[in-house]
């Protein structure tokens, strides 16, 4: 019985692992930090798995638990992680259709996103993942109106960072 549960968890996590990878990409810099956060999220998901009843999709549930883990962890270490060395984030630069100007703008944009706080990053993440406000509000446990207001503020903040 337990092995079945564990097996099904491992299977589903394996298929949905890109969700966690993407969160790690947004919250960490460097390979080691990425792996650490990945493992921490995996453990938290596993701990929460018995409560996962399957009334929502595994991925929806995983978004919620994984983001909350990242937010909590990031909050704890927010004093130590302040600056991000962009050069280390080379995997963001896509190889195809290399466009210098666009590349430069993208680079600045990623840097700006890194300066956001833990919750703001979570919202941006949901936005980048094409989630609507209903889903954002459910995942992060805030009201839809609040999510909208926050998103607008983040956009303003990003603009300010890009055009000081």
């Amino acid at each position: 019985m337990s092995n079945d549960l564990e097996q099904s968890f491992v299977q589903q996590l394996k298929t949905n692992q890109n969700i966690i990878h993407k969160i790690c990409r947004l919250y960490t810099n460097g390979e080691d930090a990425h792996k650490d956060l990945f493992q921490e999220i995996t453990i938290q998901l596993w701990k929460a798995f018995p409560k996962f009843r399957g009334d929502s999709k595994f991925s929806t549930w995983a978004y919620r638990v994984a983001l909350n883990t990242a937010i909590t962890l990031y909050r704890k270490s927010s004093k130590t992680v302040k600056t991000v060395d962009y050069e280390k984030q080379q995997f963001f630069i896509s190889q195809e259709d290399y466009n210098y100007e666009e590349e430069e703008r993208l680079k600045l944009m990623y840097q700006a996103v890194y300066q956001l706080n833990d919750i703001e990053k979570a919202l941006i993440f949901m936005y980048l993942e094409d989630k609507d406000y209903a889903e954002i509000s459910e995942t992060l446990g805030i009201s839809e109106v609040n999510a909208r207001v926050k998103m607008n503020r983040i956009k303003g903040k990003l603009k300010k960072i890009l055009n000081p």
Partner: peptide, 27 residues
């Protein structure tokens, strides 16, 4: 810029995949 970011975000989806054994080990 945000649209640009989104485009790039969706394009960049290659991660070193974690195997089942790795996941068991993590647990």
């Amino acid at each position: 810029e945000l649209d640009l970011l989104k485009k790039d975000w969706k394009k960049n989806n290659t991660f070193e995949q974690v195997s089942e054994v790795d996941i068991y080990k993590m647990l």
